[in-house]
Every structure is written in structure tokens, then in C-alpha cells.
């Protein structure tokens, strides 16, 4: 947990006035802080009361209920984050990633896994519940590692998987206004991965080693 209380960001969260990364920070803190959970609950009740006064009521389509019920039945409910061995989470994450054909091998030290569990949680949640497309990066140089990118549709997250645990490369986003350094994929068993929670402006990505472009992909 981020030990610093979010304070006024709680009310902004309830109003939807935070950006995704800011909102995730509030959610993570509130999940482990009773006082802030109470404060957020009060703010949520006020926003719900505003909704009651301002939002026209529609009848929910029956198909939506059936869809939610079907999806809920497929979900393997994960135990709470702070009471469960991390290897179980790795198993769930690996199952999700397997859909694109790149496996995640185990064998890393559990302490290292604990250090990266927050990012893995976000990636797992995003992959599990939102629509995404995936693209194989086109190799620009022959020795480029095989890599894929998942493009979250809403919110616009990115998940880059490089089929090499130590590629020594970084991921650059191409945007309408230039380039943005998204970060360095971190080793995960036999692969390296990078999850970016909010990348709405990315129209393409490059995998680079220094100034050398290894591989590239365009937003589908």
C-alpha cells in the first residue's frame, strides 16, 4: 500500500476527476486503509445522490444481465492480495498471457515476485476484463527478440511482452506530437514484460536498444 493518505484525491476519485493512474493509486490505498475507505464511502454516497437527481433512468437491457452473469461464472475468484502466496497470481497471469502464445516460466525468487506484484495485478486485471487487440512487432534487425503488444481498447493500456528475459531494450511510444519513453520491460521468467496503464495517445511503439530500433508495431 502507498502509506500516504490520498486526502482530497478521494473526493476527486468519487467524482471521476482523476486520471487512471491517479485513480489506481487511490484504489490501492483505500483497499488497505479503513479511514480512507469510510471517507470514500461518504463521497460515493453523495455522488450517487447527485446521480439520483440528475441522471435520467433507463431500463437496463436483459442481455446485459445475462452477459454479466456469464462472465461472472467464468471468473476464478482470486483471494485477497495480502493473504495469498504470489505464485497463485503468477499462475493466473500466465494463463491470461498464454492466449497470445508466449508462455511465462516460473523459477524467479519469490521476493522478486513480491516486488513486482502491483504491476502484475494491474496487467492481470486489465487483460481479464477489457477488450484488447494484439500485434506482433515487426523485426527491424535480424537479432531482434520476438515481441508482442496488447492494445487495451478502453482504457488504453499497453502490455508489451518480449520473448527474452534480458533484452536490454526500452519501449518508445509514437504519438501525434512526438515520442514518449514508456519504460523498460522487466524480466518475468523466460520473458520480459511492460504494462502501461494509460497510453491513449500511442499510435505505435518501437523497441529500442539505445538509438537502435529493434522492432516496431503500429496500433491496429
Amino acid at each position: 500500500m502507498n502509506d500516504e493518505h490520498p486526502g482530497e484525491a478521494i473526493e476527486l476519485y468519487a467524482l471521476g476527476a482523476l486520471e487512471p493512474a491517479e485513480g489506481l493509486a487511490v484504489e490501492e490505498h483505500v483497499a488497505a486503509c479503513a479511514a480512507c475507505a469510510r471517507r470514500l464511502g461518504e463521497a460515493e454516497r453523495t455522488v450517487a445522490a447527485l446521480d439520483t437527481l440528475t441522471v435520467p433512468m433507463f431500463e437496463a437491457p436483459a442481455a446485459l444481465g445475462e452477459r454479466i452473469a456469464a462472465s461472472a461464472r467464468k471468473v476464478v475468484v482470486m483471494p485477497k492480495a495480502r493473504t495469498v502466496p504470489n505464485l497463485g497470481r503468477w499462475g493466473s497471469l500466465a494463463a491470461s498471457i498464454a492466449v497470445i502464445g508466449l508462455g511465462i516460466a516460473g523459477g524467479r525468487d519469490i521476493a522478486d515476485q513480491r516486488a513486482t506484484i502491483a504491476a502484475d495485478d494491474r496487467a492481470f486485471a486489465a487483460i481479464s476484463v477489457s477488450h484488447f487487440a494484439h500485434t506482433t512487432l515487426t523485426k527491424i534487425v535480424p537479432d531482434a527478440p520476438t515481441a508482442k503488444v496488447l492494445w487495451g481498447k478502453s482504457p488504453h493500456w499497453l502490455y508489451v511482452i518480449v520473448d527474452a528475459p534480458a533484452c536490454g531494450c526500452e519501449v518508445i511510444a509514437q504519438t501525434a506530437s512526438g515520442e514518449r519513453d514508456l519504460g523498460v520491460p522487466q524480466a518475468r521468467g523466460a520473458t520480459a514484460t511492460l504494462f502501461v496503464a494509460d497510453a491513449p495517445d500511442a499510435i505505435g511503439i518501437e523497441l529500442r536498444a539505445g538509438a537502435r530500433v529493434l522492432a516496431t508495431a503500429k496500433h491496429p
Partner: peptide, 11 residues
């Protein structure tokens, strides 16, 4: 899919 998101203190 994210256990712990909701807790009773939130009402």
C-alpha cells in the same frame, strides 16, 4: 476480479 477493492467501511 480485483479482491479487496470493496470493503465494508465504504458503506
Amino acid at each position: 476480479t480485483r479482491p479487496g477493492t470493496y470493503r465494508r467501511e465504504r458503506g
